[in-house]
Amino acid sequence: MRARPRRWLVPLLLCLSLAACGGAKEDEDTAKTSSGLTVSLAPAQYQPLARAAVVSGPVSAFEEMQLGVELSGQRVTALKVDVGQSVRKGQVLLELDHRTLDSELAQAEASLRQAQASLSLAQVSYERGAKLAAQQLISAGNLDELRATRVQAEAQTATARAGRDAAQLRRDFAELRAPADGVISKRLVQAGQVVSAGTELLRLIRDGRLEWRAELPEEQLATVAVGNTVELPYGGQTITGRIRAVSPGVDAQTRTGTVYADLPEPGALKPGVFVEGRILTGAGRALMVPSAAVVQRDGHSYVFTMKDAQTVQRKRVRTGQTSQGKVEILEGLKEGERVVAEGAGFLGDGDRVRAVSAQAAENKTP
C-alpha cells in the first residue's frame, strides 16, 4: 500500500525556500555596497583667477609692401636682393636696362645747356641795349626786341630744364629702390625678364614688423582692450606681444571680431604661422573644481555630486577657462557643492560609491 505524503511538509519547504531567497538578496545588497567604487570628493570654491581669452590666429606682416617698376618693356639686368634679406631705405633692389634712357638724358642735358647759353647771350644783349637806350643811342623799339629775345630765351631754358628733369626721372625709374627699411618676403622676378609697369616684382615687410591676428567671438571680444598682454607659446619659448587694435564691430554672419597684437620681438615666429595665444584680460574670482572632476560625454561637460550618502548623480555644467589643474564652472554648480574629484570617469548616474575627502585620499596615497 503506497504511503501518502504528509501535508505539513509542504508549508515547511515553502518557508525554507523563501528564507533562502531572502538571504541571497541580502547577500547581493551587501556585496553591491561593499563593491562600490571609492571616490574622493572636493568642494566647488571661489578662487582668484587670471582672466584670459585663449584663441588661435595667424602671424602676419604689420605692413607688407608690393613693389614694382613704373616702366614697361624694359629688361631686368641686375637683381640685387633675395628672399629673407634685410634692406635699408633707398637701397637699390633691381636695375632695368637703361642704355636708351641714358641717351635720352644726355640729349636733354645738352638741350638745356644750349638753352642756357642762348639765355646768357640774350641777357647780356638786353643789358647792353638798356645802357645804349639810356644814352638815346638806340630806339625804344630796339630795346623792346632785346627784351622779348631775353624772355623767349628764359622760356626755352625752362622748357629744356623740364625735359631734362623728365629724362632724369625716367632714368631713375630704371632702378627699383626700397621705400623703407624692411625684409624681402617674396620675389616674383628673375634677371633677364622683361617687365611691365605696375606688375608686382618684390614684396617687402616694412621694418620687419610682425603682428598676430585672431578672430574672437563677440562675448570674448568685449573683454579685450588695447594694451592687453598676449602670450604666444612657440618653439619652446613664449613670445610676448601687446594688443594694438580691436575691431570696433563684429561680422554680421560669423559674429566675430578681430584683434591685432604687436610682436616687438617675434623670435622664431614667421609670417603665416598659425599659433594659439592667451590674451590676458585681467584678474577676478571664479567657481573652480578640479579638472579631473569634469567629464565629457555626448559633447557636453558633466560633474558627479552626492545624491545621498552612497549614491552619485550626474549634473551638466558649463565650463570656462582652465588654470593650474582646475576648471572654471560658469553654470550648473553652486559654491560648496561637493563633486567627485577622482574616479568621475568611471561613474554613471545613480551609481553607488564609497566617498572620502580629497585630503583623506591624498593621505592614503603612498
Rank of each mutant, 00 (worst) to 15 (best):
M1G: 11
M1P: 08
P5T: 09
W8K: 11
L14N: 07
L18N: 13
A24F: 08
K25Q: 14
E26V: 12
D27W: 12
D27H: 06
A31M: 10
T33Q: 07
T33A: 04
V39L: 01
S40L: 01
A42V: 04
Q47S: 10
A50L: 13
A50G: 08
P58W: 03
P58G: 13
F62Q: 13
F62W: 11
E63T: 08
M65Y: 00
G68Q: 01
G73T: 08
R88P: 06
L93Y: 00
E95V: 08
H98F: 01
T100G: 14
Q107C: 10
E109W: 04
A117P: 03
S118D: 15
S120F: 04
S120P: 03
A122F: 06
S125G: 12
S125P: 08
Y126F: 11
L137Q: 13
L137K: 13
L143F: 04
L143I: 06
A148G: 12
A148S: 09
T149V: 14
R150S: 04
E154M: 10
T157A: 14
T157N: 05
T157D: 04
A158L: 15
R170D: 15
D172R: 15
F173G: 04
P179M: 11
G182Q: 05
V183D: 00
K186E: 00
A191W: 02
G192H: 09
Q193P: 08
S196E: 11
R203S: 01
D207A: 11
W212A: 13
E219W: 07
L221P: 00
T223E: 12
A225I: 09
A225N: 12
E231Q: 08
L232V: 11
Q237R: 12
T238Y: 00
T238L: 01
S247T: 12
P248N: 03
R255D: 03
T256R: 10
T256F: 02
T258H: 03
L263H: 06
L263D: 02
V273D: 15
F274G: 09
R278N: 06
R278A: 10
I279S: 05
L280V: 03
G282Q: 05
R285H: 06
P290E: 02
A292R: 10
V295K: 14
Q296C: 01
Q296N: 05
R297L: 12
G299Q: 06
H300N: 15
Y302N: 14
Y302F: 15
F304M: 00
T305P: 09
Q310M: 07
T311F: 02
G320I: 06
T322C: 05
L330S: 04
L330D: 02
G332M: 05
V339E: 05
G348W: 03
G350C: 13
P366V: 09
